[in-house]
Nucleic acid binder design. Structure first.
Lengths: 240, 240
DNA sequence: TCTCGGCTACTCGAAATCGAGTATTAGCTT
DNA sequence: AAGCTAATACTCGATTTCGAGTAGCCGAGA
């Protein structure tokens, strides 16, 4: 909620890494990868170096030495400062204790579901399910091998969360596809019929909204007042 | 997967809105809000106008008229082009059919769980649960009122997904807090003891990792080889 | 009649973001 | 001994992103 001087989550990972021991940026990146933290925090070289520079500028980390090996690029080793430790703790406090609004791709897509005919949507949802199942299997495999080597779960709880969320998403999509197929989803009769009219009569989708009763009958009178202008029809704004 | 000429999800919402009827940017923003789409797609004025400009530059939308009301700022009304319709469809196809890697705040926080003592973590998780419960109640309330006015679910499935994900997160956090409290979570004995040592002996957390056997006994020999330098628990399969 | 806050409709620029590119070396094969 | 690939360790700059600012209009109340 507080606006951080350096807001990129990668900066949080940098602070967390340097809290352990001094390192140079590239070393941080390899460490994050070797521990699989790059699956939880987006790592990208461009951002890494600019984030390190920003952290230094704000006094959260400081360069402790610059090594040169032959003609290779310099490696600047950084260490965390006291201010940096505080920032890291404050940040972790926020990440764990305060849920932030987040936006997912699927949610964005679902928001425009009626823009495609039902059958096309079902087809795409099936495709997503297949991909999700593969991803779930992969994560479960990774968990199995971590358990096999007795690597304690405290060190990979974040992966368990990811798995739980993937499973929920898969279940949701499966259920949704099923409800669309069976027309159980309220509104889908209207949706399906609308697309049939568009195809058979050759009219534009937008026209359906202009005179729904004409195309769908009295049952759909609500359409005139409601979508697309949900909640705030022209004449009088509804209380939400 | 394809890199879009305009990648901001808000651009997707703009295309979706203009597919319905021509509008000026500010009108798009109010429409998105009135329909609650701004809960699924991040809306911000700065981005809105730059995204509209970018869409126009790439021929996905075009200005159809410029209105002036008294001395108010001009309102430029845009319409979608044929290329824009295709882009929108392609984008929707991808959003629905292809899961993309996403990063959540909580996942980032969990990745650094051991950086705080167990009791502090439990406290923060409890705090998150409270906040999540409030959010869940709010979403459920919104659903109830949409059902009350018989607003068909097809138009708000995205909100159902959000609810499902929030519930999963809440369940996960509750379970995690419970397992930490009871030391059921593997590794948490080590974790708890480590922090006790840090506090009673006054040594630094990093030192524990240097000679774990000394502080924890033979049981923790695995520590030397494993974390923080986890070998490669996930020998990434290279499919494509 | 005045004024005050809220809505309308954008504008601006500093900062962040990201992927692709670069240059060096180590280790391996042929 | 030459060539090749992979790894190392960054650099660059074109976009993007975003929050804060601005300025006119409108209606309600004092």
């Amino acid at each position: 909620m507080v606006k951080r001087k350096v807001a990129n989550p990668l900066a949080f990972a940098v602070l967390g890494s340097l809290a352990e021991r001094p390192m140079h940026p590239y070393e941080i990146s390899t460490m994050l990868k070797s521990r699989g933290k790059d699956l939880s925090i987006k790592l990208n070289y461009g951002s890494l170096y600019s984030v390190v520079a920003a952290l230094e500028k704000h006094g959260f980390i400081e360069a402790v030495e610059t090594l040169r090996d032959g003609n290779r690029p310099e490696r600047t080793v950084y260490d965390i400062t006291e201010a940096g430790r505080l920032e890291f703790q404050d940040w972790l406090t926020e990440l764990l204790g305060t849920p932030e609004k987040e936006f997912s791709q699927l949610e964005a897509g679902l928001a425009y579901l009626p823009a495609f005919p039902p059958d096309r949507v079902v087809e795409l949802l099936d495709q997503r399910i297949t991909a999700l199942e593969a991803e779930i299997a992969e994560v479960e495999g990774a968990h199995a091998s971590m358990e096999a080597i007795k690597f304690p779960r405290v060190f990979w709880v974040e992966s368990e969360l990811r798995l739980a969320l993937l499973k929920t998403q898969a279940d949701f999509v499966r259920q949704l596809a099923k409800e669309i197929r069976s027309d159980e989803l309220e509104g889908s009769v209207f949706w399906r019929k609308g697309y049939e009219l568009v195809e058979t009569l050759g009219i534009k989708p937008a026209d359906l909204f202009k005179d729904p009763v004409k195309y769908f009958g009295e049952e759909f009178t609500w359409m005139q007042a409601m979508p697309p202008e949900v909640g705030a029809p022209e004449p009088k704004p509804e209380p939400k």
